[in-house]
Design a protein around this nucleic acid. Sequence first.
DNA 1: ACGTCTTTTTACGTTAAAGTCAACCGAGAG
DNA 2: CTCTCGGTTGACTTTAACGTAAAAAGACGT
Lengths: 142, 142
Amino acid sequence: MQQRFYTITQLTQEFAITTRTLRFYEAQGLLSPQRRGRQRLYSPADRTRLKLILRGKRLGFSLAEISEMIGMYGKAPGEAGQLRLLMEKITARRTELLEKYRDIELTLKELDEVEAGARSRMAEIGGVFEDSAAPVLREEEA
Amino acid sequence: MQQRFYTITQLTQEFAITTRTLRFYEAQGLLSPQRRGRQRLYSPADRTRLKLILRGKRLGFSLAEISEMIGMYGKAPGEAGQLRLLMEKITARRTELLEKYRDIELTLKELDEVEAGARSRMAEIGGVFEDSAAPVLREEEA
DNA sequence: ACGTCTTTTTACGTTAAAGTCAACCGAGAG
DNA sequence: CTCTCGGTTGACTTTAACGTAAAAAGACGT
């Protein structure tokens, strides 16, 4: 089991982030790379955690939320009450994620419509110049 | 065509936001409700825009990005160049959204695994008290 | 050994998205 | 008329997530 390590700049290049960001995440307790002297050495596990962090960010979670989510892995609460709490958190996250899932579906559908409108207008312009009607903001019932 | 309006507090209650938030969005040009004297009157169209804004927020977009996305609706650029630009933006957004889509799928899958682990530990505790092994953070290859 | 480059630490600055607070206005109830 | 209730405006404050700058310590190629 060869432990390959990454330097800070390797990670910044791979994930297009800055050193400041990595050190900030460390200060927030999201990462804790080893040290060789004063230098940081990121293990593959650290790299994986970083990927999880960035994924959380893409989905709009705060660092605090991400911290909590990552904490769900790795930890094995021994007490029953703690386990119940964990399960509740999981359910809450799942609900939240499914909501985002539907949000994305809706948004994608709307993008399709806008694109369709744009295509037809492109076609018109390709022929003769005419005025075209703007697509209207629908109002579905709540 | 009866134009029903909403007061600012109605909207805050319906969407669980504050008046400050609504006025802030207005100051940012995301909403522009009519006025009756100094009072704001939100039309159904305003309400729909608000829903779009909140959806964008849930997905982690900034208000500036949301503003641009909403701008895609409603506008009908007459010039061909503008249309091409619009199409490009649409493509970019779609790519971004699909990425989030996959992010969610991954996260949901991982939640499932954590939950499964928690369940089995619950079962153990239900029986006799034993030590249980913590689930480990996998490292898939990049 | 030397200069250059990277890394670290510390400290202060910045931006987006609101929250909080204070003071004021206008409409209707009593 | 006075009181109260919403609504409005403006100023100030806050928080998260970094950016930027400065100074010093290693690390590296020649």
